[in-house]
Design a protein around this nucleic acid. Sequence first.
DNA 1: TAGGAACCTGACATTGACGTCAGAGGTAGC
DNA 2: GCTACCTCTGACGTCAATGTCAGGTTCCTA
Lengths: 123, 123
Amino acid sequence: MRIGELATKTGVSVRALRYYEEQGLLASERSASGQRHYPDQAADRVRLIQQLYAAGISSAAILEMLPCVVTGVASPQVLSKLRGHRSSVVKQIEDLQDTLRQLDSVLAGAVKSHESGVPCTSP
Amino acid sequence: MRIGELATKTGVSVRALRYYEEQGLLASERSASGQRHYPDQAADRVRLIQQLYAAGISSAAILEMLPCVVTGVASPQVLSKLRGHRSSVVKQIEDLQDTLRQLDSVLAGAVKSHESGVPCTSP
DNA sequence: TAGGAACCTGACATTGACGTCAGAGGTAGC
DNA sequence: GCTACCTCTGACGTCAATGTCAGGTTCCTA
């Protein structure tokens, strides 16, 4: 498929896809005229990339770990970096759960008292 | 306390604290010479701000919700925004848990096979 | 074969949360 | 009062993942 189709299929912009290629994260075959063509599995890879981005992992780090994620085989160095990312993701989850509790307590208190108190709107 | 102490106490840079004030997130008393002075509770507020930032909430949104988080009273509009942020945090957590599973499956596979296979190092 | 949609490269713009630097003034211990 | 450190404002720099625009080429359908 061409880049536009991949973009609509994955919900990622054309610009972002070209950026992924620029970063070495996503390969493409080129037609004689220079247009990019992708196999079907490219969509999965794009989703994987997005997922790793969402975990706060940089493109350089993704580049490093991507082949391992695909092949399932990693050198010890890459392995330890993966473990590092893993624990950072775990910490992010814990922090977010903390935040969730904060928000929940605010929501609980606010819902109870928003009729009687002085509601705050804009600063 | 002065800004340097607050910075070391919270692990947030002096620059960031001034930025928070610039955004209206953190107030300070000024001495006659113009230096910022903070009460002890400022440290808690800074931590709260950091927590909200970590949840991907923008400074404008934090500014809006901060008084409510402190007082526990919110207007219906702010309340619905808070709910919106809540669900976005929930989604972030779910996404990160997905990523965690991905990383774990990679790690499991890689640990098993990193002696026999062709390890991938740098691209 | 015409014309509009899709694509190309290249380059500059954007956004948010700071980093950093300059030049000047404040604070505190001795 | 000296000295070392702290703080001030203001302004420009950074970084990463895109957005956007320009000027040109390619594809597809009627």
